[in-house]
Amino acid sequence: MHNIKQKIKQNKTLDFIFSGKILFLLPAFALISIFVIYPLILAVGYSFTDYYLLKPNDISFVGFDNYMEIAYDKYAKKAFFNSAKYVIYIVPLQVILSLFLATLIAKKSKTNTLFRTAFFSPYILSIIVVSLLWKNILDPNSGIVNEFLASLGFAKQEFFSDPNLALPTISFIILWQGISFQMLILMAALQDIPSSLYEAASMEGANAWQKFKHITLPSIKGQVVFVLIVVTTGTFKIIIEPLVITNGGPQGSTSSILLYMFEQGTRYRQIGYASAITVIFAIILIMIAFVQRKLVKEEEG
């Protein structure tokens, strides 16, 4: 029986290949090859060289030197650590709050349409615009938040100049903008849950929390996992907000690993070293996604 199934599967694959349908995948494959696979192979290759941007004709193989250097580079370590901090600050809050908001506005009504539009509007703004907007709002001298604090008799806060405040403040901005997209995904999932399940639970005397725990959460688990993976990898890839708002400062307190890699590659022109950081970064992201999926699958099993 197993052999028959396998043969049917093989025949289907061969049919797919010879029917010509596979050719329709070629454009997508070509694009992925040019913009993802080829750069990835190049990055891995360059990571074993001393490629300096201004000397493209003078590239030498240096083995694992770049990787060894990362191990001793305290600025790289700080950037990795900062990226982890961003993840810790943003991921749990973004997932929980987006689920909370989605639950609030999942029911179809005119008021909810208004709220959905309001909640989603930050997402359609450019990240640079949002960054500059918050930079002005939180400006220590003339920002409205500090003016408000001062009017209440509180001391003005150096949101972006204080090394202890800068990273949490940027995390808040990222959270504020990103939450709406995750909310939309979870809201769509919530709307797909059959209302009969809730009706049956009500008849059985289940309270709101029990309904959420035993109906809502299991029904949208797949989407929650998707959101979790997307938010985690997305948060690790933060670069624009710290670049625009603080340029990684003060004292490197908001620099992310991607920002550090960008700085090494473009400003210091060390393509080889930046490539090594990229490779390590890619491995970390793949591992995180793999572990998250594995954990969820185990739980499902």
Partner: peptide, 21 residues
């Protein structure tokens, strides 16, 4: 040839002084 690094290093010192870090 490493001017960008020197610029950043001086910036680090000046910022460190300003923030008393």
């Amino acid at each position: 040839p490493i001017f960008p690094v020197l610029e950043d290093a001086l910036g680090d010192i000046m910022e460190g002084i300003a923030l008393d870090n």
